[in-house]
Design a protein around this nucleic acid. Structure first.
Lengths: 224, 224
DNA sequence: TGAATTAAATGACTGATGGTCATTAATTAC
DNA sequence: GTAATTAATGACCATCAGTCATTTAATTCA
């Protein structure tokens, strides 16, 4: 009796269709100015139906955001699974995040909301938990890679992998946020190209956290 | 004819009273769950009156936030005006930001909203402009100090002051955001004290952006 | 096949809340 | 003391997230 299974599939499909519609609307208008009626119209469903699949607008927003987190996970995963030396892996990891930012700016932007609970009003515990779990998986993946860099004597042994990851991630993300919302201002007021600043910031930090061996290998990679 | 002036003063006072009330409510509940009725009640005024002084809830929120920006400006200003050597000034500047974060966490938190326009819905152009101007003044102040560090051969000559400022600011702020909302998670999941990570991140960056002279003077300061 | 049952979808409705405006109250001017 | 001006009010409006009684469609089973 495959009817039950077919129905499950259809339900899952509907969930995805709604998410597609929500994504279109949120990408277009942001959280504040998107309405559930807009999303319903875009999905060609009634508003009530949206609520059969998602508990609140904020849950829907964060569920779209999780697609973005999953893409980031996949990108990092590919780096982690590529059989390459630690130094190259570190370089690729950093490159993957930059690539993600340029390619998936909309998802990147949504992640701020997750980071700032003071703007949450109707986020369900389930969705909060799902986000946390996915977030944690990304960090575990990154920390694993960084641990391999420590073991391979690319990163200084006196630094914990999580510590290094957090430092690199923080400075890069904060600069990306600026690029996203204030790139023009910084170019005009201070003659600064924020993409260059981001590269510089990365270079400085790598310089500071790598072993001598790591510095040499990274330099060799960037010259090749 | 002092009546007109007295009225101006009273109006200004009322504006401040409303802002005090808004601050109490926003600090207590955040933007999303605070209501204009709450603020009106806290101010012992009718809701209509609030709108004689502020155009929208979001304007009110950002005006409270600007108090926080002004406090930061004042703190930085004090550092800039203290007659001390560039190295000590740099050290104090960094310390002032950390002190600000610990002392004025509520204001610090509000600043995320300003940084993320995708969550704006009713922010007026006037208030946006005021925020930008104040923001710019802070950056001018910081850049002036950093320029003095370059001139005093504390900071590397090949780095633009604005570049250095942005890099230091970005990494510190992103870590502070984590401390504010996820301190417990990082302590439990990764045995990381985020305050230590923040210090480490600062040390690494200072190491990378200072001249040899600067490194020595900063080390001397931290030992004294 | 068709009546009975279950499941899915609907959209009119409710409640909350940001924002408005005609009216009232208070102050000032003459 | 009265007219004119200014400030404050709160009932009201509009929007929109979220609900639920009803309808529609699909499935079961006699």
């Amino acid at each position: 009796m495959g009817i039950h299974e077919r129905k499950e599939r259809e339900k899952e499909q509907r969930r995805e269709d709604i998410l597609d519609a929500a994504q279109r609307v949120f990408f277009e208008s942001g959280l504040a100015t998107s309405t559930m009626d807009d999303i319903a119209e875009s999905a060609e469903l009634s508003k009530g139906t949206l609520y059969l699949y998602y508990k609140s607008k904020e849950d829907l927003y964060l569920t779209v955001m999780m697609r973005g987190m999953q893409l980031l996970y996949d990108a990092f995963s590919e780096v982690a699974n590529s059989a390459c030396a630690p130094a190259e892996m570190l370089s690729r990891l950093s490159g993957a995040y930059l690539h993600y930012f340029n390619l998936h700016r909309d998802y990147f932007r949504m992640m701020h909301y997750w980071q700032a609970p003071q703007f949450h009003k109707q986020v369900s515990e389930e969705v909060k938990l799902s986000c946390s779990v996915l977030n944690q998986r990304i960090w575990d993946l990154v920390n694993g890679m960084l641990q391999r860099c420590v073991d391979g004597e690319i990163l200084r042994k006196d630094l914990k992998p999580a510590e290094v990851g957090l430092i690199l991630w923080s400075s890069a993300t904060a600069l990306m946020m600026r690029i996203d919302s204030e790139e023009g201002i910084w170019r005009e007021a201070f003659q600064l190209n924020l993409h260059d600043v981001l590269n510089l910031s990365n270079d400085l930090l790598f310089e500071a956290i790598c072993t001598e061996k790591g510095r040499l290998e990274l330099k060799a990679l960037s010259n090749s």
